[in-house]
Amino acid sequence: MEIKSNYNTELEGKIALVTGGTKGIGKAIAERLYQAGAVVIVTARNEPELENTKTHFIAADLTVANDVLKLEEQIAEKFGTIDILINNVGGLTTPGGGYKVLTDSHWENELELNLISAIRLDRTLLPKMQEKKSGVIIHISSVAGKQALWNLNLAYAVSKAALNSYSKALSTEVASDGIRVITVAPGATKTPPMLKFVEDFALSSGIKNEDAEKELMKHVGGVPMGRMAEPEEVADLVGFLVSPRASYLTGSIYAIDGGSLPVI
Rank of each mutant, 00 (worst) to 15 (best):
S204E: 15
A246I: 04
A157R: 03
V158A: 13
V223K: 02
V223C: 05
N164C: 08
L154D: 06
G258T: 02
L154P: 01
P193F: 09
F201K: 07
Y254F: 15
S142Y: 09
Y248S: 07
S141Q: 07
S260T: 07
G259N: 10
G251W: 12
I253P: 06
K218W: 00
L152A: 06
V198C: 10
D257A: 00
K208V: 04
D200Y: 04
T189D: 15
V238L: 15
Y248C: 05
M228N: 01
I137M: 07
I140N: 12
A185W: 04
Q147E: 14
A255K: 07
A144H: 12
P231D: 14
E173L: 14
T183P: 00
A185K: 06
M225G: 02
R227D: 15
V181A: 12
A162H: 02
A161W: 01
K218F: 08
S141D: 11
S171R: 12
K168L: 14
A185H: 01
A202D: 04
E210P: 02
A235F: 01
Q147N: 14
N151R: 04
S167Y: 04
D200S: 15
G221Q: 07
V158F: 00
L249A: 07
I140A: 08
E215C: 03
V242Y: 05
G178F: 12
E131Y: 12
I253W: 06
S167E: 02
L154M: 12
Y166M: 00
E173K: 12
K190T: 15
Y156D: 02
K133D: 01
V158W: 01
K214V: 01
L249D: 00
V234R: 04
G251R: 06
I207F: 13
A169Q: 06
E131K: 08
I137S: 14
I179C: 11
K133V: 00
A188G: 10
E199C: 13
E230N: 10
S171H: 13
N164W: 11
K146F: 14
K214A: 08
Y156R: 04
P231M: 11
S134Y: 01
R227P: 13
Q147H: 09
F201V: 11
L195M: 15
E215F: 01
M228D: 03
D200K: 14
S204P: 05
K190Q: 15
G221W: 03
E199D: 13
D236G: 05
L152P: 02
G226K: 05
G259V: 10
P186R: 05
G258C: 01
I138P: 08
V238F: 10
K214D: 04
P193Y: 14
L152S: 03
M194G: 07
L163T: 00
Y156T: 03
S165Q: 12
E199A: 12
T183R: 03
N153Q: 05
T189S: 12
L216T: 09
L237Y: 03
D257V: 04
G251S: 08
L195G: 13
V238D: 12
N164I: 13
D177N: 12
H219C: 04
S176N: 09
L195K: 13
G145I: 08
S205R: 13
H219G: 00
V238I: 15
P186I: 07
K190Y: 10
H139Q: 14
Q147M: 15
E215D: 09
G178E: 10
L149H: 08
E233F: 10
L241S: 07
D211M: 12
S260L: 09
E232L: 02
V198D: 03
M228V: 04
P186N: 09
F240D: 13
T183Y: 06
G178T: 14
F240G: 10
I140Q: 11
M194W: 06
